[in-house]
């Protein structure tokens, strides 16, 4: 299995990815998701504004036994070019505490509770972007736009400094609305009696 983990070729650039139909399909799927979520709209760049770069990032997800689970292509904004106070403000977002997970597992074992796991697809695209951010038009196979347009971001794209925090705010808001209480000792734990 060590062999499988180390020899999977992961492209560094879009051009490399275009040699493999697996990656092309993933680029198309990601592009579809981005468009479906109205992640941006095409606008002429207003005077005095700058665009942020973006790039495709490719990765192979493995199952616990080392076999390939799926290919993943993700468009990310080059958030490292953002300036604090202009493009973004707060960025902190909590991560689940390992102790909390152990407590949950212990409860599940001792009280015979089920443990369900869920994932949210394209998490960050669920939150509207509050700041004004312009991005270069990304490479895509079916790029319809020509001329002097840029992408005005409407959703918190991957790579933006504010995205994790914005998503967590959006998620906590929903959980509280469903009547769940946010734990004081771990803000990523939501409880309902």
């Amino acid at each position: 299995m060590a062999h499988k983990l180390s020899t999977e070729d992961v492209p560094n650039t879009v051009n490399e990815a275009l040699n493999n139909p697996n990656w092309i399909q993933m680029i198309e799927e990601e592009m579809e998701a981005l468009q479906k979520n109205n992640t941006w709209k095409f606008v002429p760049l207003p005077e005095g504004k700058k665009t942020m770069g973006c790039r495709w990032v490719f990765s192979v997800k493995h199952k616990a036994d080392g076999s390939v689970e799926r290919y993943k292509a993700r468009l990310v904004a080059k958030g490292y070019t953002q300036t604090y106070g202009i493009d973004y403000q707060e960025t902190f977002s909590p991560v689940a505490k390992l102790n909390t997970m152990r407590v949950l597992i212990s409860l599940a074992v001792n009280l015979d509770w089920p443990l369900h796991q869920f994932d949210v697809k394209n998490v960050f695209l669920h939150k509207d972007l509050e700041q004004e951010v312009y991005m270069d038009v990304p490479f895509s196979l079916t790029s319809p736009m020509q001329g002097k347009v840029v992408c005005k971001l409407q959703k918190t794209l991957y790579g933006l400094k504010q995205s994790p925090r914005a998503w967590f705010g959006r998620f906590s808001f929903a959980m509280r609305r469903y009547g769940y209480k946010q734990s004081n000792s771990d803000h990523t734990l939501f409880l309902k009696h």
Binding site: A96, L98, M101, I105, L115, Q117, V120, K121, V123, A174
Partner: peptide, 15 residues
Amino acid sequence: TEFEMKNLGGLKYFL
């Protein structure tokens, strides 16, 4: 109803 959820079934891998 508000997020695009993916059911991964039982807990297998987390953190």
